[in-house]
């Protein structure tokens, strides 16, 4: 059977079950507030959000591959485009833009114009160190790790901190050769 053609983010998004973004936004907000109450330290909350994102990412990649028909990307450039145009669109309903490649082609920025996580959100003075959307960086890191790419994802710009957009920096640390998850003698 010939491989199915990869779908565009719009096509996938149109064909799957969706929910109101406000339910999603408010639920995320409720969770972040619980974390702030439980963990007290903003840094700890950032860490926890990143971990939660990672947990999501390692599961989400399966659904992504199954529904988008995307197959192996030829290079990191293609990976970046697929994350921005298909991944973001398919799950959050908004596409991101890929910019600011470095000379080696190992790191790029994802710029989000629209971010469903932050509707209704304003950071109080006590939470200025909070990366409210840190879950997103975890998701990208987790999902890429499952397709053999170790990455580091950091926030460059954040509108909740007064910047003019949301910008995530994705840096490829190394490509991990694929291994069987078990050894023959075990």
């Amino acid at each position: 059977m010939a491989p199915l053609a990869p779908k565009t983010g719009d096509a996938v998004f149109a064909s799957i079950d969706r929910v109101n973004a406000e339910l999603f936004t408010l639920t995320y907000g409720a969770m972040v507030r619980q974390l702030l109450t439980d963990l007290e330290e903003v840094d700890e909350v950032n860490k926890q959000l990143d971990q939660m994102g990672y947990n999501i990412g390692i599961r989400l990649i399966d659904e992504f591959l199954a529904k988008s028909n995307v197959s192996r990307c030829v290079d990191f450039k293609e990976t970046a485009d697929v994350i921005a145009k298909v991944g973001f669109k398919m799950f959050l309903g908004v596409a991101a833009a890929v910019t600011n490649w470095d000379a080696e082609g190992t790191s790029f920025s994802l710029v989000l114009e629209d971010n469903p996580l932050v509707d209704f959100v304003e950071l109080p003075d006590t939470c200025q160190g909070l990366h409210y959307c840190n879950i997103l960086s975890g998701v990208i890191r987790g999902a890429l790790e499952m397709v053999s790419m170790k990455t580091e994802v950091t926030w460059v710009r954040d509108m909740l901190h007064g910047d003019d957009a949301y910008e995530l920096r994705v840096k490829l640390l190394k490509q991990v050769p694929e291994e069987y998850p078990y050894k023959d003698d075990e």
Partner: peptide
């Protein structure tokens, strides 16, 4: 105020909710 027409995928919500439950 948004008009509330925006949507995200059900999976995105399900993943988030599952993390909320697991963390709790």
């Amino acid at each position: 105020l948004s008009r509330g027409r925006q949507e995200v995928s059900l999976s995105a919500f399900a993943f988030l909710f599952s993390e909320l439950v697991q963390y709790s």
